[in-house]
Design a protein around this nucleic acid. Sequence first.
RNA 1: GGGGGAGUCGCAUAGUGGCAAUUGCAACAGACUGUAAAUCUGUCCGGGAAUCCGUUCGGUGGUUCGAGUCCACCUUCCCCCA
Length: 323
Amino acid sequence: MKNESEAQHRFAPFSIPNYNRLMKKNTLIVIAGPTASGKTAFAIELAKTLDTVILSADSRQFYKEMSIGTAAPTVEELRQAKHYFVHHISIEDKYDVADYEQDVIQLLDELFKTHDAVIMTGGSGLFIDAVCNGIDAMPDVQPEIREKVEKLYQDKGLHGLQEALQRLDPDYYATVDQQNPRRLQRALEVCYQTRKPFSSFRSGNTAKRDFDIKKYALLWDRQQLIERIDKRVDMMIEQGLLEEAKALYPKRHLNALNTVGYKELFAYFDGGCSLKEAVEQIKIHTRQYAKRQMTWLRKDIGYRWIMPENFDNTLSTLQQGLA
RNA sequence: GGGGGAGUCGCAUAGUGGCAAUUGCAACAGACUGUAAAUCUGUCCGGGAAUCCGUUCGGUGGUUCGAGUCCACCUUCCCCCA
């Protein structure tokens, strides 16, 4: 036993100055990274040796109707480790970050009773953030209110939204991205729903969680990542993405289907472009998505960045319960 | 061989005498507390934080105070007739 710990001390790559035994109790290990970085496989390997489970933080793998196009874990992968939040809802369901945060925290409470560590992996920055730092509680917005705000946007455009928000919540208006209709709309929805300014619900506080969080980001050199993305898109087509998209086509107006890999094929079905062009668009849009993910990761200094050549030893370090 | 059309900042596109030059895409950087694989912003000929400076619109000459825009020749490409 003594020897083993000495060996770990000597060989664990990050352990020299800050050696600590990590998996003492209640640690959430976050494995992030841009799309196609290899998160799924990494997380599964880790889950197997740690004998724990995986919580997906991928806002599109939630939907049971979307498998191929979201690169959701395969049946085989799902067999290798217990996954949560993969295909657990339908594209017809209403589900947002707040729902997710609540579900995850509740589940973690249970899981930590029997597991020292739980893995979370996925590429949705906001969702990971909500779990790690919390998100302010806000009342639900009724569908009629959302429609009302949407109508305001349709009728009066961005200006209409800007004017309304400036009137109802000048504080927030001063800090929002005033060019972004989505931001304006959301704030207005809450204002109309609650008759209070949106900003009155924003505490800016970071939630205190009763578990440790260790964050890792799997990163690739740009060119390599592009090649991986291109290859994976081709593979999705081979695996039948066309059929999957075709089946979903009638529901294409659902928000869940405003998603890379589907919307481009819908355009093709509509005769807007050739299949070849659609596939090329999917590749391009996926790269752009990966880029946005990188922006998210870069601004969070809590991440430990792992390059491909270090995937293996990081994995084994984690597998040994060190960090 | 004859006739017609066209070469603009990575690609595509606007511009017909005052333009460093339109728009779209791509690219790069960024924002983002409930639509987030969504949505939005900035940059995008070179130099500069910037007023600005320097070099541009296939090539070479020319006309003009001034040319991407007009003229001549050259060159490349496309279409039609042979």
